[in-house]
Amino acid sequence: MTRIINAQPNRYGRLLLGLLPFIILLVIYIAASDARLAENPSDKLLPSLSSFADAITRMAFEPSKRTGEYLFWADTLASAVRLAMGVGISALLGLVIGIANGMVPYVRSPLSPLVTAISLIPPMAILPILFIVFGLGEVSKVVLIVIGISPVIIRDMQLRTDALPAEQLIKAQTLGGNSWQIILRVVLPQILPRLIEAVRLTLGSAWLFLIAAEAIAATEGLGYRIFLVRRYLSMDVILPYVAWITLLAFMMDYALKRLSLWAFPWYQKAQGGRND
């Protein structure tokens, strides 16, 4: 008999098994929702699928009665811009400071302790300061994301730079490279795929900070909407929004993975072709 550790599902089996938990959760939800609605048709806690469809149509495909905007898309755009700016700035900071810290001792000595200290500040604790300093506009939300995730990326990039074999850097010097050329041609291209990995891992935190900032002070955005409609117990809006955020996060993660595969084929080969 085949041992359980050797038994492999085939391709369709894997797909089916992957979908199964989602289907089970869905069935449980529908059953629970039906049971509650049978008892009290105006129950708002577990709305039926049709009320989800109504809510989605209302939010995404009909202009808002008050502002004339398609709220769902306006929220998505506002959040996406904030997230992209926050993550983009963090990635750039992480790349530049991380490599500089890893490669140049005279940069590392003053900067590394500072980065470590900043990374230990709980970002949410200084959110009020950001609101006071930068106002309630876009800047404070972007800055919160940057403060939240850039220290992590910087430290990761610094460690990755340190982890490059010393032999490579010595070899590059014997080939006549100056410091700048070595950073540009040897270090940077090897750090970029690792930057993408770091961004993928910090995307979750970036969403966390974004939604927290939007919940506290914003006039549009996915996090703002969720916290706004919470007052009316509008589970029919909250749950689709949560699902949408999850889907967006998944698509970003997937896009970054494809980008890494496409732009750095050598990296996947050197890693043994793992596909995570």
Binding site: E167, K171, T174, Q190, Y267
Partner: peptide, 12 residues
Amino acid sequence: GIVFQKYSVFPH
């Protein structure tokens, strides 16, 4: 010129 036992070439 140097050739080490490993890591002498650039993987990228």
